[in-house]
Lab assay of single mutants.
Amino acid sequence: MIVFVRFNSSHGFPVEVDSDTSIFQLKEVVAKRQGVPADQLRVIFAGKELRNDWTVQNCDLDQQSIVHIVQRPWRKGQEMNATGGDDPRNAAGGCEREPQSLTRVDLSSSVLPGDSVGLAVILHTDSRKDSPPAGSPAGRSIYNSFYVYCKGPCQRVQPGKLRVQCSTCRQATLTLTQGPSCWDDVLIPNRMSGECQSPHCPGTSAEFFFKCGAHPTSDKETSVALHLIATNSRNITCITCTDVRSPVLVFQCNSRHVICLDCFHLYCVTRLNDRQFVHDPQLGYSLPCVAGCPNSLIKELHHFRILGEEQYNRYQQYGAEECVLQMGGVLCPRPGCGAGLLPEPDQRKVTCEGGNGLGCGFAFCRECKEAYHEGECSAVFEASGTTTQAYRVDERAAEQARWEAASKETIKKTTKPCPRCHVPVEKNGGCMHMKCPQPQCRLEWCWNCGCEWNRVCMGDHWFDV
């Protein structure tokens, strides 16, 4: 396979590697080409510095992935760790964990309700045991953590790749202090920090972006993250068709209702045909949960890209028209025109101005929308079919299609509260000796007794199943 190397943020060049090629071997190839010592090179990928003893497969490097290699003399205490030698983080029983690669970060837990604080980093599902597709590297999971809308060759929703760059020099040479644990960490600028490894760059702020994971991409090709779309790892039924499908869209209502993408497309087109989208002054033209839940309008309007190009163009047109109407304007009634106009409040005669090729020149009556006339309008008909009709959803289907309910059931079956801080902690095999993952707590306690870890627990039921 081919990976592209950008040395000291210059133009990239291809390097041929195998899945079992080590990072140090990659350094040696680059060092020979650039005429520099291999031990002064640092390989940066997806916000993480890659260790010498890791392989291309370990690092989730795919065909035509772009890695950054910078030349920086080692500072005291760094060289041993980078070589894969006596790194205290690798000691058996050590409590410190390697910062998780962005290629394996899962933010789907952050669609849980606000009262489930902490689960994004504490609760991990076991539903990723799908067998890898044919042709994928051994052991590589097909679980997708992110979804994007690819405006490039795909023109559809695709699995996405999370990447990070330095907000100062805009190069992907920043190593994160810690990985993101929720969508806010990724979507809110300057929320996460790190250290830029580019020479002479003092940058410390992280800037995240997404790429389409279905095809090789260049540095400049980015895609918009659709953070309401998630892999259906909890096997929730769709609120409309009641099938279990994946991926799904999880509405931001209190129940976190789930809808499959085909039904979401149908829901949007139906509402669009009836012009029953909601115009929100802050958000724009949007839709609420299909069950009509309060405070559930979709905030990231790129989710409506699921409509496809033709329907999305209609959505944008109707949204612009609705904006004009909300501002007190009118639409030209001549067939084939429909231009938005903003006449004076007491102006009865409205002319669709033909300047700049935008208007048709038609003069019409503001009251009856017919060709302009003197005197009273002959008839004014009330528009028919403008009443909002509820999208029919079966109550039982709505009850079963809740992301929140599956989460709470998982928590109930696989977790116990920490005796000190009461945060839910998952036990997935292993011994009875637990350690609270909350940095402010870190209590060592017994899963069996529910009390602080002691010699009695150690001698009596340390390794009970």
Results as ranks from 00 to 15, higher is better:
P437K: 04
M432G: 03
L228R: 06
F13H: 03
T270K: 04
A31C: 03
P88V: 11
R366K: 14
G35P: 01
D464Q: 15
A214H: 07
F381A: 07
C457K: 01
V250R: 09
A363K: 14
P281M: 07
E444I: 05
V393Q: 06
Q311M: 05
V380N: 07
V269W: 03
L112C: 13
L102G: 11
G429H: 15
E444N: 15
A339H: 09
A383G: 10
L119E: 15
E28I: 02
D86T: 12
R156D: 12
S296D: 00
R42N: 04
C253V: 01
F7L: 03
E195M: 10
R275V: 00
I236K: 09
R6P: 05
C332P: 03
I2L: 12
G284L: 02
T55P: 04
T387C: 10
E207W: 04
C431P: 07
M432K: 04
S65K: 05
S127A: 14
S22P: 13
C169K: 00
F146V: 04
E300L: 04
G385L: 09
S233G: 07
A214F: 06
I306L: 10
H257D: 00
R366M: 07
V393P: 08
K408T: 11
T242L: 14
G47R: 01
D262H: 04
S246R: 04
K435L: 06
Q171W: 04
Y143I: 08
E309F: 10
R455F: 15
A401K: 02
S218E: 13
A46Y: 05
R6H: 06
P99E: 15
F210Q: 00
A398H: 09
D106A: 11
S205W: 09
Y267T: 03
K161M: 08
S286T: 14
W74K: 10
G430V: 04
C150L: 00
S223I: 07
I69R: 01
K299Y: 06
C238M: 01
K129A: 11
R6A: 03
P343V: 10
W453A: 02
Y372K: 03
T222N: 11
S223N: 07
V393T: 07
Q197R: 08
P180S: 00
C293Q: 00
Y147H: 07
C169L: 00
S116T: 11
S378F: 13
L61Y: 02
Y147A: 02
K412V: 11
Y149G: 01
F13R: 02
Q326P: 03
P132A: 12
T177W: 08
T217S: 13
P288G: 14
K32I: 09
V36D: 01
K151E: 15
G292N: 09
H302Q: 15
I2T: 14
S19I: 05
V111D: 13
Q282A: 13
S193Y: 11
G375T: 07
I69L: 04
D39G: 06
T231L: 06
K412A: 10
I239G: 02
K211A: 14
T351P: 05
I188K: 11
R442D: 07
L307M: 08
A397G: 09
G179Y: 06
A82Y: 12
K369I: 04
S127G: 12
K129Q: 12
I298N: 00
P333V: 04
S10M: 11
L41D: 00
F364V: 03
P14M: 03
A172F: 07
N90K: 12
F146H: 03
L331R: 04
C260E: 00
I259K: 00
R420V: 08
S22E: 06
E96H: 10
V111Q: 13
I2A: 10
P343Q: 07
V258P: 01
G203I: 02
R396W: 08
T21P: 00
D130Q: 11
T168K: 09
A401D: 02
V456W: 15
R72G: 11
T410C: 10
R256W: 02
N454S: 15
P153D: 10
P199Y: 06
P417N: 15
G118W: 03
P199C: 07
R6C: 05
S198F: 08
Y318G: 00
E353L: 06
H433E: 05
E376S: 13
E321Y: 04
T415Y: 12
K48C: 04
A38H: 06
C457Q: 00
I142K: 12
R442V: 05
Q252A: 11
W453T: 01
T231G: 09
Q347S: 10
C449Y: 01
C289G: 00
V186R: 00
N232S: 01
D346W: 07
G336A: 07
P216Q: 09
A134E: 12
P180R: 01
L119M: 14
D184S: 09
A92Y: 11
C293G: 01
P335W: 12
Y147V: 02
G450K: 02
S255G: 06
C441R: 00
A31W: 01
L249D: 00
L443V: 05
P189T: 06
P202W: 07
R234S: 07
C263N: 01
R402S: 12
V164K: 02
H461D: 01
L50S: 01
C446R: 00
E300Q: 08
A46G: 11
G213D: 08
S384L: 09
V186Y: 01
L249Q: 00
C332G: 03
T270E: 05
P99W: 10
L297F: 06
L162W: 00
S193T: 13
G355R: 11
W403M: 06
P88K: 09
V324R: 04
F251A: 02
C441M: 01
L283W: 08
Q64K: 14
N235G: 14
C323I: 14
R420E: 11
H227K: 15
G319D: 10
C365E: 03
D60V: 06
